[in-house]
Amino acid sequence: MSAAAKVSPARKIMQDGLWTNNPIFVQVLGICSTLAVTNNLRNTLIMVLGVTFATAMGSLTLSLLKDLIPRKVRMIVQVLVLSFYVIIIDIVLRAYQPAISKQLGPYVGLIITNCILMGRAEAFAASNPPGLAFLDGIANGLGYGWVLMVIATVREFLGFGSLFGIRIMGDGFTPWTIMVMAPSAFFLVALALWIANVRKARVAAAAEKAAKGGKA
């Protein structure tokens, strides 16, 4: 009996979303709409929560509807359901946080075309029960979210010397202008990807060594 067989499906889903199958590390999915706002922690947090909400609710809805949707129009139904939730996010933001909504501009609407949403709807929700699909949406949203929050922390700290808009560094600190601009986001995602790949390779090598040692 291996340890993997005992893990409950819910736990496995969380593990997959947060690390093993993390949407950013494994496929670099869905970074388009959110990288643009990662020079500011508060905006990133809101975008991440929006993506998590839309993915989880979208997966739940599509899993409930999966037997009712004819195969031929599945894609367009998925897009319509997802855009419904994104519209809710947009309206709520506009009503309660008009300043942030203005700063985010088109990027809230662009959650619709975030590949993670469609990816999870197609890969998981279309063939799994609603409860698990909801959990899978949350796990993937958070797995995507923590990586972006780390990137946003680095960018805001080095770019403005602040965190969540609160100044941390004194007046002597020279902001790294590059961190505010687009190129740094690409560099930081690449760096995060590199670290994740190296760690995964190490874990795999250790597991192989352990397996060999067990046999001998």
Partner: peptide, 10 residues
């Protein structure tokens, strides 16, 4: 660790 996507992003 950087092959493929990583170096492309850089």
């Amino acid at each position: 660790g950087l092959k493929g996507t990583g170096i492309t992003l850089i």
